[in-house]
Design a protein around this nucleic acid. Sequence first.
DNA 1: TATTGTTATACTCTATAACTATA
DNA 2: TATAGTTATAGAGTATAACAATA
Lengths: 162, 162
Amino acid sequence: MKNTVRPPLGGFSTAFLLAQVGAHAAARFAERLEAVGLTPPHAGVLRVVNTSEGMSQQALGEILRVLPSRLVVLIDELERRGFIERRDHPTDRRSYALYLTPAGREVLQRVGRAAREHEDALCAALTTTERAQLGGLLRRIADEQGLARGVHPGFSRMRASK
Amino acid sequence: MKNTVRPPLGGFSTAFLLAQVGAHAAARFAERLEAVGLTPPHAGVLRVVNTSEGMSQQALGEILRVLPSRLVVLIDELERRGFIERRDHPTDRRSYALYLTPAGREVLQRVGRAAREHEDALCAALTTTERAQLGGLLRRIADEQGLARGVHPGFSRMRASK
DNA sequence: TATTGTTATACTCTATAACTATA
DNA sequence: TATAGTTATAGAGTATAACAATA
């Protein structure tokens, strides 16, 4: 009767669950990306460059909230692997214009497939309507909290593929 | 008409939202802990030791999935600040028995208050019933994915208070 | 011989500052 | 003078290995 296990502070709170499940989701997705040979930051760069090609590294860094010095190495790696191209900027010779290569577009499609499989595996416990319901609730929280769409704060540390 | 912004891969998926909102929740909570003078790992240690006092560092590390070498410094810090005590283990002289001090219990209550305020702020966009609904859906995902209750994977890197 | 806690060390990731070339 | 990209360096966080005391 004594020594009953009391709910560990926050152990059942929605906020804690959110952080816990969110970290799990990010980790599982990073694993799938690893199979494609990418890290989450790499995928983020490809994803954003794809949405508006020709952007500068500066602009990219502001969208992704990644430091310029870090972007250099990320883009170096993606360029070396033939996924992205640094072309001369038409008017400003200080900056580059970033473009995806055909191989880059290809790998981005593989990322898309991985994302769909990930989504399916992650929400296996829920019905289709429940998934939509969950998505709606999360969307409203994200908007109210002022989170930018499609920007993941804290890309962070998952093992690179070399 | 051309150049329409296509949904950035995964930008609207539930899994991405989950990771995004989850990271946001963790970051905001870490900020509140900072005001109490703790980091998330510190709070995790206090929380678990509180649920079953007298446990060894080994046992604690297994529950929190924290390496023994890291636990040493975490507990050192908590002990130095008078929140936790290393007593002699009654039967095994190799290990310690961990206990909260009165000050430790006090600070844990402040953590609890911070958690409740955090929850409120985070879910401000939702009604009470919607919060419960969200909690239920997350709970089912967490259980199906095999996540241990009350264990946050990836405590990780938030600024320490000194 | 195995285990608990500890220390020392290496490795990764992220952040800061200094440098160049252009504007 | 300010900005884009780069390089070099330092810092924090995490993991690995070796060690002393005890089982």
